[in-house]
Design a protein around this nucleic acid. Structure first.
Lengths: 107, 107
DNA sequence: TCCTTGTATTCAAAAAACTGAATATACAGT
DNA sequence: ACTGTATATTCAGTTTTTTGAATACAAGGA
């Protein structure tokens, strides 16, 4: 028997433009919150709220490294859904952002 | 540039257990409203409301045949999304339902 | 034309999601 | 211990979604 309520949780989490954009970034690999903040141009607290929603839905998980917290996708299903709707992940990898203090942006 | 708002419309429509169940049925081919009513055990008006939501989101389209209205999926993207989350479509085709007056259920 | 059947729409109340503001927590450096 | 930086949580007001109830519309048959 298929659990439609279960699937609904996933789609609900996906049904939001900012969360979609975050997940889209995460297709390329794990990212720190500071990076999302710089890339999306939204307040930090707001991004953290959306990340909480994604965590609660079980779509992402986080890893703490010093002051930064890195997020990544939990499973391949989410990546497949994004591929189907947004198209394949864009090449080029994670851009270096001036305003981001994470190790990736400070060579 | 990716249109996240556009994708959000699709995911919003999918983020509902009854609508998901309707779409799941439609993976097997077009179905009449009376069939959904019998299969889901919900009021007709309620099902029609969910179908309206799916139509507004552009996920399904309808065809009128006499008294009955048949619905079908508009594109393959939706079917792909359902495959990814619900698993592949179950074999067996559309079951014949006692309480459904459509031609399919009256051999 | 009138009645029946199948489907669609409108409306309103309740529930849920969204988001800004304020605040809390955790960690690193001094 | 104190400070600053990165992230998380709580709260409340607003907006949106959900859903039951009532009603409207459309097509076929008598």
């Amino acid at each position: 028997m298929i659990d439609y309520d279960d699937a609904t949780v996933r789609f609900k989490a996906l049904a939001h433009p900012v969360r979609l954009q975050i997940l889209d970034m995460l297709r390329g690999g794990e990212i720190c919150v500071c990076h999302m903040e710089a890339a999306l141009g939204k307040r930090q607290a707001y991004i953290s709220q959306q990340l909480m929603a994604l965590r609660d839905a079980g779509l992402v998980e986080s890893r703490k490294d010093g002051l930064q917290v890195f997020y990544r996708l939990v499973d391949d299903i989410t990546a497949d859904l994004l591929d189907a709707v947004l198209g394949p992940v864009e090449a080029g990898g994670l851009p270096v952002l001036e305003s981001c203090p994470c190790p990736n942006c400070n060579s």
